[in-house]
Design a binder for these strands. Structure first.
Length: 823
RNA sequence: GCGAGAGUGGCGGAACUUGGUAGACGCGCUGGACUUAGGAUCCAGUCCCUCACGGGGUAGGGGUUCGAGUCCCCUCUCUCGCACCA
């Protein structure tokens, strides 16, 4: 009586044996190639893993397992993005200390990852909230500080009233809190920044050298938002007759003679200075309501109507000394460029709309053909030939920009320059659960860095860690922690009470895995040199402009400091598609459509769960979960089980029979080895699984004749088990043992295909007449065109369509297709 | 508006790298076998029209070619990201 396919028993049997044998420990044998394959650093949430997480983790696990079998040294680690806002929000919600909830949630994640039997080397597990880890996060802060890349400044900040925390621009994208989607407000605060803007150009350039999805690169380019233009200083005269500079940024300096008014953002300081008495009331009320609006309201997509108010003041265009009215309007953004623009209604659609509404003059200065057309009914934004532009008339736009830039610089009222949309990275958080910023504020010495040998600055164990209404960090309430001598003068001083953004922790974690216990620095230089950079980095697209941009920035800083010899940390990046609920909507607790790995593994086994996650659809595509599908792959595994078991029960296979059937079988084995190998390398797991299913169906068709196929059958069965091993580790190992093979299937060499076995004796040639398939023909491989044509013409269908005539034209694709064209 | 990507059976998707049997593989469905039973297993079928011969078919329209899901042009639809960035 053959054993049944009992996945639960297999899992219970092999898990402890593999742990004991250290099956997933990281080998580091010289003379072997290496693979550093990393999954995104997860924040262990309280709700645990859903099957959707497996859509990311299982494919990378399969790649790692296959590479191990191919003799690679594979680094495949996992750790926890334990510090930061999400972990802290959770702790606040459940009224438990974040150290407790984080440890518990991480343990649960790890347990669930083990349900998937992911082959992480858990001896390298790291927590970003561990002092042995954040010591080096702080060390990196000091590195940035010393290099002039960390500074304090007062700016209006994005503030989430619900989370009671400031957010970086990246976290506040679209004016809402990245965590709770609350509408953000602005708050004027002194905060720490990292000078990521100084790396804008290099962050752009580096994108050309990495193998990342185009969409992610595009998002980063868009976020950095480089635009080349000019800064031109207009002059505004205030009510007292004093002159003030009003710099504007423009990408179209060639249109400057068409400027008929200027506009500043409601927040612009010149409003206060220059507004005339008779316009004062109108301006005040406009500014008040504009500033009150939320960011989304101000940028509301369906209401682009331009509004604004005349300040009563005039700005002088330095190119023609013309005084043009100065408006305040909220379509000009305070954060971009200088917060002030010259408005050229003839050649900018926004300015055009504004000019129409307030009946301001529209002056054409660019023409496609150098002829003045007058009376524009819309803004023409194309470059062209300058008209009405004083000495620059007649020049082509591109040349005019250069010449006018040079002229402005020579005259001292402007220059060509580049502006970026990206702002410096706001790093400080008024929160408890993060790495303390290693700075001491001294009344006499100012902001003093904590000396490296005093790191880490330990996070005190606060009972009361919730943020209050003060807008200060809970750490500020811990006086004994705050009070400290100044490292410089020894006098009484106070610690910085803000902690670092959680994204600081994840900006370097990929280094730590190379040598997780190292204490002389963030990473052992030897391990760094061997493992880094990350060869394959896999995770969701939601971190496109946060984590992925910050980590690239830190890496470039490390490179400049001589710490690493690469400046792009992630050579290849892939984004997995999202797993939706069975109802096609996003899996979420509130919708009640979450499917957990625990449920599925219990019902169908870890192998079926893994296999289905690979099979359900293309890696990068979003797909809806369907339980009937996992039942399908479970059925497949049962079929594998019974076929392999009965083959093993047959005993030692007979000698190789050199017949047609055995050759055909060998062909299919090698074809499958090839297909599965290449598909895994290309992240096409769904078709790799399909190929194995096809192969099994083929083997089933030979089932009755298997003993006659001798050792070729044994080879086919063995290959099936080995090809499955990275995808379905348990059944593969159990069958390997059942077949009486020694050692673990996970320590065998990955099968290789034999090109010679892929050459077929006979081949099927499609026969087309006048472009339509009419018949097919079995011919010996390598048959000549003449032979094939001769045979084809004898086919009754072909003869009928050819009408007995000889083909006027023949196209023959060797061994595949014959196309006959009648006259 | 800008950027990225996608439109193929009842469903998820193959074939797109290299133009050459469209619908692999799985789900679902239909019929049959075995069975006390079966949400177990096995076998057969399953793009549409047609009794058949045959014809049609990859969002729509043009084009290149002996031959187009695949290449080129135009249009439409959808998803994602950014969005008054001067």
């Amino acid at each position: 009586m053959s054993p049944r396919y009992d996945f639960a028993a297999m899992e219970a049997k092999w898990r402890p044996r593999w742990r004991e044998a250290g099956l997933y420990s990281t080998p580091c044998e010289p003379d072997r190639p290496k693979l550093y394959c990393l999954d995104f650093f997860p924040y262990p949430s309280g709700s645990g893993l859903s099957v959707g997480h497996g859509k990311n983790y299982v494919p990378t696990d399969v790649v790692c397992r296959k590479r191990r079998l191919e003799g690679y040294n594979v680094l495949h680690p996992m750790g926890w993005d334990a510090f930061g806002q999400p972990a802290e929000e959770y702790a606040i919600r459940v009224h438990q200390h974040p150290a407790v909830t984080t440890a518990r949630n991480a343990a649960n994640y790890r347990r669930q990852m083990d349900v998937f039997e992911l082959s992480y080397d858990w001896s390298r597990e790291v927590f970003s909230s561990d002092p042995a880890y954040y010591r080096w996060t702080q060390w990196f802060f000091l590195l940035l500080f010393k290099r002039g890349l960390a500074y304090q400044d007062v700016h209006p900040q994005w503030w989430c009233p619900r989370c009671r925390i400031v957010l970086s621009n990246e976290q506040a994208s679209s004016g809402q809190c990245w965590r709770c989607e609350t509408e953000l407000t602005r708050k004027q605060l002194k905060q720490w920044y990292f000078k990521i803007t100084g790396y804008a150009d290099r962050l752009l350039e580096g994108l050309d050298r990495v193998v990342w999805p185009e969409g992610i690169k595009a998002m980063q380019r868009n976020w950095i938002g480089k635009s080349e233009g000019a800064r031109i200083v207009f002059t505004v005269v205030d009510v007292h007759g004093r002159q003030h500079d009003l710099p504007v940024f423009t990408t179209r300096i060639d249109t400057i003679y068409g400027a008929t008014f200027c506009v500043v953002a409601p927040e612009h300081p010149v409003v206060e200075i220059a507004t005339t008495a008779d316009q004062d009331a109108a301006v005040r009320s406009y500014v008040a309501q504009a500033v009150k609006k939320t960011d989304t309201e101000r940028k509301a997509a369906d209401d682009r109507e331009k509004t604004g108010v005349f300040t009563g003041a005039y700005a002088i265009n330095p190119f023609n000394q013309e005084g043009i009215p100065l408006f305040v309007a909220d379509y000009v953004l305070p954060d971009y460029g200088t917060g002030a623009i010259m408005a050229v209604p003839a050649h900018d659609r926004r300015d055009f709309a504004f000019a129409r509404r307030y009946t301001l003059p529209i002056r054409e200065v660019i023409s496609p053909d150098g002829v003045v057309h007058g009376d524009l009914d819309h803004a023409s934004e194309e470059p062209g030939v300058l008209v009405n532009s004083g000495p620059f008339s007649g020049l082509e736009s591109h040349e005019a920009m250069q010449r006018m830039g040079v002229y402005a610089e020579h005259e001292g009222f402007g220059c060509l320059t580049t502006d970026y949309r990206i702002h410096d990275w706001l790093i400080s958080r008024q929160r408890y659960w993060g790495a303390p910023i290693p700075i001491v504020h001294c009344p006499s010495c100012g902001a003093v860095p904590v000396p490296e040998e005093q790191l880490p600055v330990h996070l005190p164990d606060l009972v009361d860690f919730e943020p209050d209404e003060s807008g200060r960090s809970p750490l500020a309430r811990c006086e004994e922690w705050v009070r400290t001598p100044c490292p410089s003068c020894g006098g009484p001083a106070a610690r910085e009470t803000d902690t670092m953004d959680g994204f600081a922790c994840s900006s370097w974690y990929f280094l730590r895995f190379a040598s997780p216990g190292y204490s002389e620095g963030p990473v052992d230089p030897e391990a760094l040199a061997y493992w880094l950079p990350v060869d394959l980095y896999v995770g969701g697209a939601e971190h496109a402009v946060m984590h992925l941009l910050y980590a690239r920035f830190w890496t470039k800083v490390m490179y400049d400091a001589g710490l690493v010899d690469f400046d792009e940390p992630f050579t290849v990046l892939k984004n997995q598609g999202m797993m939706l609920g069975e109802d096609g909507r996003k899996m979420s607790k509130s919708l009640g459509n979450v499917v957990t790995p625990d449920q599925m593994a219990q019902r169908y086994g870890a192998d079926a769960l893994r296999l289905f996650l690979l099979f359900i659809g293309p890696f990068e595509t979003d797909v809806a979960w369907q339980e009937s599908g996992i039942a399908g792959v479970h059925r497949f595994l049962k079929r594998v089980w019974s076929l392999v078991v009965e083959s093993a029960d047959d005993g030692v296979p007979g000698p190789e029979p050199y017949d047609e059937h055995a050759r055909d079988l060998a062909y299919h084995v090698h074809k499958t080895i090839r297909k599965v190998s290449l598909d895994i390398d290309n992240f096409e797991f769904n078709t790799a699984v399909a190929a194995l299913m096809e192969f099994l169906n083929y083997l089933y068709s030979l089932r009755e004749r298997r003993t006659a196929l001798g050792s070729t059958w044994g080879f086919a069965i063995e290959s099936l088990v080995r090809l499955l091993s990275p995808m379905t580790p348990f059944i593969s190992e159990e069958l390997w043992e059942y077949m009486g093979r020694s050692g673990s299937v996970h320590r065998q060499a990955w099968p290789k295909w034999d090109e010679d076995a892929l050459v077929r004796a006979m081949t099927l040639v499609m026969v087309q007449v006048n472009g339509k398939i009419r018949d097919k023909l079995q011919v010996p491989a390598g048959a000549s065109q003449e032979e094939v044509v001769a045979q084809a013409l004898l086919l009754p269908t072909v003869a009928r369509y050819m009408g007995g005539a000889l083909p006027a034209r023949v196209v023959y694709v060797q061994d595949r297709l014959l196309s006959l064209v009648s006259a």
